[in-house]
């Protein structure tokens, strides 16, 4: 059995998202002059966090033995 790749991806992006969101909330806001006044850390960090959690949940589901042979989401289904 292979380790579902969505798990490490999910974990990495969730952590990255948390870091960026936290920095976007508590960090110095004058740095956002550079990004046209948009708090890009907060917005993009939140996006990454959602993506990371989604991947993590899909990965969890994919690792459950009972779903191993069912058609998964999109193209990940086995066709043997």
């Amino acid at each position: 059995m292979w380790m579902d790749i969505r798990l490490p991806i999910g974990i990495l992006f969730a952590i990255l998202g948390c870091i960026l969101v936290a920095y976007g909330l508590i960090g110095d806001h004058s740095i956002y002059r550079q990004s046209l006044g948009i708090n890009i850390n907060l917005i993009w960090g939140a996006g990454l966090l959602v993506f990371g959690l989604g991947m993590f949940l899909l990965g969890k589901r994919g690792m459950r033995p009972d779903t191993q042979n069912e058609p998964g989401p999109a193209a990940s289904s086995p066709d043997r």
Partner: peptide, 11 residues
């Protein structure tokens, strides 16, 4: 370097 502040720049 032009658009990204610290944080996003790291990413």
């Amino acid at each position: 370097l032009h658009y990204f502040p610290s944080g996003m720049l790291g990413l």
